[in-house]
Design a protein around this nucleic acid. Structure first.
Lengths: 148, 148
DNA sequence: GAGATAATGGTAATCAGTTTCATTATATAA
DNA sequence: TTATATAATGAAACTGATTACCATTATCTC
C-alpha cells in the first residue's frame, strides 16, 4: 500500500498538488475499503476515527480532486448520494456491479466482457471509448428463489 | 400514442391507481420527449405549458409512481439530478448511452449487445438478470480529433 | 347525495454537496 | 532563517434537488 500511496503522491505533485496529511488519510481509507462503495459521509466518519479534526469540506474537496486525476471513480446506485471506489482493471476500464433488487447486495464483476460491444459501438457510432459504467439489476443467488 | 396511454392507464388501474388528468399530461410529455432525458423540472416546465396549474410535487410523485411500475426509468448522468426516459427494448431491457466527455452530447445506443456478457454473469455469479444500465464514456465523432 | 378515500398544490423541511472566509500550513525568495 | 506569497483547511452559511406535510379538491362507494 505504501507504494501505491507514494505513486499517487507523485501523480499529484506532478500536477502542482500536494499529498497533505488529510489527503493521505482520506486516500488510506479508500485503499482500506476497496469494493465497499463508500459515500462521502462514510469516508468522513472513517477518517474521523484516525484524526478527528478533519473537516467534511476537505473530504468533499479531496474526493473531487482524486476523481479529477482518475485516482478513484464514483458510482451512483440511486440512493441519492455518490459513492466512491478505488480500483480499476489493467486497461483502465472499471469493473461492473450487479445489484440485487431484493436484498440490495452488490456483486463486483471483475471480468470486462465488453470488448466486443465496445468495438461495435466504436465502429457504428464513430465513438472513441475511454471508459464505461455498467450496472446489472436482478436477483442474487439467495434471493432468486422467491423473487418477485 | 393513444393506445400506449390507455394501456398504461390500464396498468395503473389494475394496481389500484388512477390515470388522473395531471398524470396523463405528465405521461404525454414523456411520450413526446423520448430520448430527451428530461429532469423533473424539465417535465414540470413542459407540463405547465399545457396546464399551468400542475404542481411540482405532483410531477415528482407521478414520476415516482411511473418508475414503480416500470413505465419509465431514470438515469443519472452525474449532473446532480435524476433524468427520466420512456422507452425500452422489446425484451424489457434498456438501451445504452454514450456520453461525450468534451461536448456532453449523449448518443442512444439501441442495440443490446449484452446478451453474451449477461449469459456469463448469470452463470458465473448465479445472478438472475432482469435489467441493466450501461454508460459509455469517451469522445464523439466531432470531438475525437482534438480530444485530450 | 353523504362520507370515506385518493390525489393535488403550495410550502416548509431535508439533505447531499458547494461556497465562503478567516485561519493555518507550506513553499519560495531575499 | 525570516518575511511573504500561495495553497489547503475547518467551520459555518448557502444552494438546489427532492421529500414531507397539510389543507383543499376530486373521486369513488354505498
Amino acid at each position: 500500500m505504501k507504494k501505491v500511496i507514494s505513486e499517487i503522491g507523485e501523480k499529484l505533485r506532478s500536477n502542482e498538488y500536494k499529498l497533505t496529511p488529510q489527503r493521505q488519510q482520506i486516500l488510506e481509507v479508500l485503499l482500506e475499503n476497496k469494493d465497499k462503495h463508500l459515500s462521502a459521509e462514510d469516508v468522513y466518519n472513517l477518517v474521523k476515527q484516525k484524526s478527528p479534526d478533519v473537516g467534511l469540506a476537505t473530504v468533499y474537496r479531496t474526493l473531487e480532486l482524486f476523481l479529477e486525476f482518475d485516482i478513484i471513480h464514483s458510482v451512483n446506485f440511486g440512493d441519492g448520494r455518490k459513492r466512491y471506489e478505488y480500483g480499476e482493471n489493467s486497461d483502465g476500464h472499471h469493473h461492473h456491479h450487479a445489484i440485487c433488487l431484493k436484498c440490495g447486495k452488490i456483486l463486483e464483476i471483475n471480468e470486462d466482457l465488453l470488448e466486443e460491444l465496445e468495438r461495435q459501438v466504436a465502429e457504428q457510432y464513430r465513438f472513441t471509448i475511454t471508459d464505461h459504467e455498467l450496472k446489472i439489476f436482478g436477483y442474487c443467488e439467495g434471493c432468486k428463489v422467491n423473487a418477485k
